[in-house]
């Protein structure tokens, strides 16, 4: 299976609270009306300019091994080392919310509309995360239709550049997925263009295979430790 996914913008619109949180405004704090309005305007702009599109592709364990190894620069031990041997199914994915959003963010900063620009950047980042979740949902649907998803099956995404998986693996991932067909390119530093794009693997398997502690050496450099939230989410699937 390899499919191009056109994701309806309405399915991946970030809520105001998420955009404000991405602007370091804590949940539970009510900002003044002016800031709330900025967030709402950013979301309205997002609705107009975002063009979420992705590619999802089933891969065999061997195919994924090639992508995972990349250029041989992964950490000595990673969560994926433990998880992938027990996976039932694997899919590579890439998704973007498009170039227009990035252009508008740049334009706003160029005309000194710093606050709207920063707010739109936050909305775009949140929107890209939602688009990646939409792709994962699509994969779950695909597995369900083939009888490969039951109540004990969890799915979890990993991306090159995180959790010990070196970003240079992007090259092999692009060799297989060909994201240039939907307008995503890779630069020599393995960064995607448009910048608000996400790529990686979706792993499906028994929920218990995903449990890991965030005590790998590279975890010391991680600010968010969001893996633990994501692992909790797997248990709720």
């Amino acid at each position: 299976m390899r499919q191009e996914l056109r994701i309806p913008v309405g399915d991946v619109v970030p809520p105001v609270v998420a955009v404000l949180k991405a602007q370091a405004i804590p949940e539970g704090v009510t900002p003044d009306e002016r800031i709330s309005r900025l967030a709402e305007e950013a979301i309205a702009t997002y609705r107009t300019l975002a063009d979420p599109v992705g590619i999802l592709m089933d891969v065999s364990r061997d195919e994924f091994e090639t992508v995972y190894r990349g250029e041989g620069r992964n950490a000595d031990e990673t969560p994926l080392d433990r998880i992938r041997p027990s996976a039932d199914s694997l899919a590579l994915f890439v998704v973007t919310i498009g170039e227009k959003m990035c252009e508008e963010i740049t334009r706003l900063f160029d005309v000194r509309e710093f606050a709207p620009g920063s707010m739109l950047d936050a909305a775009a980042s949140e929107g890209a995360e939602l688009a990646a979740q939409a792709v994962e949902l699509s994969y779950r649907q695909h597995l369900h239709e083939r009888g490969r998803l039951d109540s004990d099956t969890g799915t979890l995404q990993f991306s090159p550049g995180y959790c010990g998986w070196h970003i240079s693996a992007q090259r092999k991932l692009f060799d297989i997925l060909h994201p240039e067909e939907i307008g995503i390119t890779l630069n020599p530093s393995f960064l995607m263009h448009p910048l608000k794009s996400i790529s990686g693997v979706i792993i499906a398997g028994p929920k218990e295979i995903f449990a890991f502690d965030d005590d790998f050496p590279f975890c010391a450099e991680c600010r968010t430790h969001s893996c633990q939230d994501r692992l909790s989410a797997v248990l709720r699937q």
């Binding site: 405004i25 800031i35 900025l38 000194r112 920063s118 707010m119």
Partner: peptide
């Protein structure tokens, strides 16, 4: 105050 407030002030400064 928060980041957007600072950025609005920065625009005024400019």
């Amino acid at each position: 105050i928060f980041l957007p407030d600072v950025l609005l002030a920065a625009k005024a400064m400019y």
